[in-house]
Design a protein around this nucleic acid. Structure first.
Lengths: 221, 221
DNA sequence: GCGGATCTGGAGGATCTCCTCCGGTTGTTG
DNA sequence: CAACAACCGGAGGAGATCCTCCAGATCCGC
């Protein structure tokens, strides 16, 4: 990831900043003041800006950190023989990871187009998920009109639930996700659905989420 | 609502401010700067603070304004003979009203405990909705384990979808809501759901949403 | 028309967040 | 060990937002 090797103290400070950002963003949201992130890391704010020139750079580093967990969700699902159970496990565990992220629930619906390596990881994850979808549909377990874009929409919806209920009704998301999985299940005849958003639309939506937090002002208008 | 009759100019300015707030909050979110609301109304910022001492006061007035539309949604649903169609109409139209509110999608999940008249209106609406739920369940059309608290959760989820997709994939919420209605429908056998949040939990969640926007700083920590 | 109460608004102060400067410090290599 | 480049951080500036003051203006009832 880093092209130029950092001095030992700089590398240490970078890790401290990243640890601090993960904690602060989870506790107070992706718009927590960067001065507080630096202070919690025990370094000066100029150090933070030197290593992460923009908030979006910091968010990207945090997202990359979390990618390990999401990849594990996929591996767990891939190890399940039953296609529906594999798919459902992926969805549930993804939402559980989102719930565990605290106020950073939006991170799962952020994209960083300029970050080649990160986006490559994200695409690999997405392709793994697509295979789960195909398998579950081929097995007749997942409704034929399910669209892969339905999952990012679900994650946006779940972020909305978590934003409102994470502290006050911490189990609410589970019921919500259970409803959604039941709706996705093909085992019953169903009415037609309105059209799914296109992948392009979803990419733009995720860019919008990122832009909303990447800039200095929360609602930058 | 106002106990002391305002002078004509003050009443006029209050209406201008409210109109302006409705527009600005829809376009830029409930955290749009109050100076911009005042400027768009063509009045001074002190006039805004005199009439609406806190942002929450302004949000309350905006919510009260919108109550007319929500009450119309209930009346439309109540006029429908078929219980399932009545319930589904209520949910769909409520979500449509939410989508029409632009960046003010959270308003439907805000509460103002100190505002007796507004809360009375909200309770009347909720009781009308409860009757729709009971009728649809009694008719066997709405699943027996559906909880009235599932609708506020749905509105929070929909706010999450709208927050991310309102401009980029404006129809996404429709598909999402259609999925949810299919999940609510009793016409098929279903697995058990995780427990619903309690009314108390939902009230606290809605207070949290309100607190999040009512204070001066967007994420006031 | 007058008097008095209500109302007006722009400037300025306070606070918060972002961001950069630059003299001093530290790590690394030869 | 010395040289040099990388690195450090707190202060201060800029901008945004919230909030209040107070002299002047306006409305309304008698």
């Amino acid at each position: 990831m880093s092209e130029t090797p950092l001095r030992a103290d700089a590398a240490r400070n970078r890790e401290l900043l990243l640890d601090s950002a993960v904690r602060l963003f989870a506790a107070r949201g992706p718009d927590a003041p960067l001065e507080d992130v630096a202070a919690a890391a025990g370094v000066g704010v100029a150090t933070l800006y030197r290593r992460f020139p923009t908030r979006e750079d910091l968010l990207l580093a945090v997202a990359d950190r979390k990618m390990d967990a999401y990849e594990q969700v996929l591996r767990t699902a891939q190890a399940i023989a039953d296609p529906w159970t594999a798919f459902a496990s992926y969805v549930e565990n993804f939402c559980a990871a989102q719930a565990a992220d605290g106020r950073l629930a939006d991170i799962l619906t952020m994209v960083f187009p300029a970050a080649r390596e990160f986006e490559a990881r994200r695409m690999a994850l997405y392709n793994g998920y697509l295979a789960l979808v195909r398998d579950a549909q081929a097995a007749g377990a997942l409704r034929a009109d399910y669209s892969p874009e339905d999952l990012p929409v679900l994650l946006m919806a779940n972020a909305g639930v978590l934003r409102a209920t994470a502290e006050t009704a911490p189990g609410a998301w589970k019921r919500f996700v259970a409803y959604m999985l039941q709706a996705f299940c093909a085992s019953h005849q169903r009415e037609d659905l309105p059209p799914a958003p296109t992948p392009r639309q979803m990419m733009r939506s995720m860019q919008q989420v990122t832009a909303c937090h990447g800039r200095s002002a929360p609602d930058a208008r």
